[in-house]
Simulated scan of single mutants.
Amino acid sequence: MRIYGLKSCDTCRKALKSLEGAVLVDIRADGVPDDVMARALTQFGEKLLNRRSTTWRGLSEAERQGTPGALIAAHPAVMKRPLIEAGGQLFLGWDKDVQAALLR
Rank of each mutant, 00 (worst) to 15 (best):
P68L: 14
W56D: 04
F44V: 11
M79F: 11
V23I: 13
E20I: 04
D97N: 14
E46S: 12
E85I: 02
W94R: 00
K47Q: 11
R28Q: 09
V25D: 03
D10I: 03
S53L: 03
A62V: 12
V36R: 02
W56S: 03
C12Y: 07
D26Q: 09
V36M: 07
G69D: 01
C12V: 14
P68G: 03
G66T: 02
R51M: 03
Q99R: 12
L92M: 05
N50Q: 05
S18L: 05
A38S: 15
G21R: 09
F44P: 14
S8F: 04
D35M: 04
T54W: 08
P82S: 00
G21F: 07
R64C: 01
T55C: 02
Q89K: 14
I72G: 13
P76V: 15
L83E: 12
C9Q: 01
H75K: 04
E20F: 07
K96F: 03
G58H: 07
L19P: 02
H75S: 10
M1I: 03
A74I: 01
L92I: 10
M79R: 12
K96I: 07
T11F: 11
G5C: 07
K14L: 13
A100V: 03
R81T: 07
G87P: 11
T11D: 10
V36L: 10
K80Q: 14
L49C: 11
R64E: 00
R81E: 04
S8A: 13
E85W: 04
R104I: 09
L48Q: 05
L59D: 03
R81L: 08
A77E: 07
Q89Y: 02
L49R: 13
R104P: 15
D26C: 11
A15N: 01
D35G: 04
M79D: 11
S53H: 06
M79C: 12
R52T: 09
R64H: 01
P82V: 00
K14C: 03
K96Y: 04
A100L: 13
E46L: 11
K96E: 14
L90V: 14
V25G: 02
G93M: 02
I3R: 01
G21M: 08
Q65W: 02
V23T: 14
A100S: 15
D26W: 06
T11H: 12
L24M: 11
F91D: 07
D35N: 08
